[in-house]
Amino acid sequence: MSDNRNFKVPDGAEPVGRPGKQVRIQVSIPSDGDGFFGRQCPDCSLIFRMDMQQYKALPDDLTLWCVYCGHRAEHSNFLTQQQRNRVIQAAGNYGMQQVSRRLGKAIRSRPSGSRRSGVSISVTTKPYRPRPLPGINEERLVRVRTCPDCQIDYAVFGEHRYCPVCGQLPAASVALDALQADTARLAALDALPNETKALLREQGVFTRNWVDTVENVVGVVEALASALFHAAVPDAEKRVKGKGAIFQRLDPMTDLFVDAGFCDLRPALGHERWQRLLTTWAARHVFTHNDGIVDDKYLVKVPNSPARTGQRLVPTEDMCRQAIEDTKALCETLVDGLR
């Protein structure tokens, strides 16, 4: 047991509890200029940020999800390292005062000198000044996400799949966020200084980025369409059995939805956009499986292509931006068609 009377604390720390009872130290965690503060996953160690005022309104027995890996634990386990250092400093201040008090009492309880020992003890005390708590200087948020289910605001610093409060995000949110990431990646390369861009272009970084974008948009639709279909169709497994990677193929995927009683994506998107999507999907196939070399299958799917068998497709930034825009429209039409 400890007495918290006359306990000196730095700004940001406060002893709580009645005198004579065990002391608990309440340490404040400051938010940043946007009102957000950090949370760090105890499993993958990655940091995300949450709105402080919204967080305070959540239940005391809250369990959090890591937005990146999905680890779930009691919210106090999500202290960042800087926050942990702040708490340790507050505890150290308290501990030093307790040691000083007890040592002083022990010395004062003994005679000042002893004939037998020939030892004399003298004690000089100074007023204790607690060390200031360290501040928090963590990475600031760039863009705020809002969970479509619980409306909690949070910020991430990488690809994520979970809301910190309610868990798994809706497939549509994941898909649209992935497309925004591809758009941001194109913009980041375009914003580089010309000298840097020239070096990266010579090394093939731009081309690799464009190829990755084409491959990514197909993966986004595949994941979204599969999730939506399995959630909406009771016998989904039976319907897709034996059909391979059907959600990677636009026309067969659309026919699957139509057969299950949902709208046809093709007229909803329009002929011109649908043909561009077919071209993007065909390009993805040759990039992924044939190092970009045009084959007869590609020319069957894209009969108006100027390329010839054996040539290598060369993507462009404009092609990628158009592919992202078309894919976003496809994703939105998929979601709307199942409502």
Rank of each mutant, 00 (worst) to 15 (best):
T279C: 06
E317A: 14
N290M: 07
A307L: 11
T316E: 13
K297S: 12
T288R: 13
R276D: 12
R308I: 03
V302P: 03
Y298C: 06
A282V: 11
P306C: 01
A307P: 00
A283N: 10
E272W: 07
Q311Y: 03
P303N: 08
W281Q: 07
Q311C: 01
W281H: 13
R273Q: 10
W281M: 11
K297D: 11
N290W: 00
R273V: 06
G292A: 09
R276S: 13
A282M: 13
N290V: 04
E317V: 14
P315G: 01
R276M: 05
G292W: 03
P303Q: 14
P303G: 09
A283P: 02
H285W: 10
R284N: 14
E317P: 11
G292Q: 10
K297G: 10
R273G: 00
R308W: 04
A307R: 12
S305L: 06
N304G: 04
T288D: 06
D296C: 02
P303R: 13
E317F: 05
I293H: 12
R312N: 04
V294T: 05
N304V: 03
D295M: 00
K297Q: 12
T280V: 04
E272L: 09
L278M: 08
E317N: 15
E272H: 07
N304H: 09
T316C: 06
H289M: 04
L299Q: 12
L277A: 03
V314E: 14
Y298L: 05
V302S: 05
Y298A: 00
H285R: 10
A307T: 06
Q311V: 02
G292M: 11
T309Q: 14
G310R: 04
T280Q: 03
R276G: 06
Y298G: 00
W274A: 00
V302F: 05
D295A: 01
N290D: 09
P306R: 08
A307M: 11
T279W: 00
L313Q: 04
E317D: 13
N290F: 04
R276C: 03
A307N: 06
N304K: 13
V294Q: 05
V300Y: 01
H289T: 05
A283I: 03
T288P: 00
A307F: 13
N290Y: 05
I293V: 15
R273T: 15
D295C: 01
I293S: 11
A307K: 12
L313K: 06
L278F: 04
E317G: 10
T309S: 09
V302L: 08
D295H: 02
L313C: 06
P303L: 14
V300F: 04
H285G: 12
T288I: 15
E317T: 09
D296M: 07
L278H: 02
T280M: 02
L277W: 08
R312I: 06
D291K: 13
V286P: 00
V314I: 09
D296T: 08
I293Q: 14
A283Y: 03
L277M: 14
V294G: 04
W274G: 00
A283Q: 10
A282E: 12
W281D: 02
E317I: 13
Q275R: 15
F287P: 01
D295K: 02
R284T: 12
R284M: 11
P306L: 05
L277C: 07
T288E: 08
K297P: 02
Q275F: 04
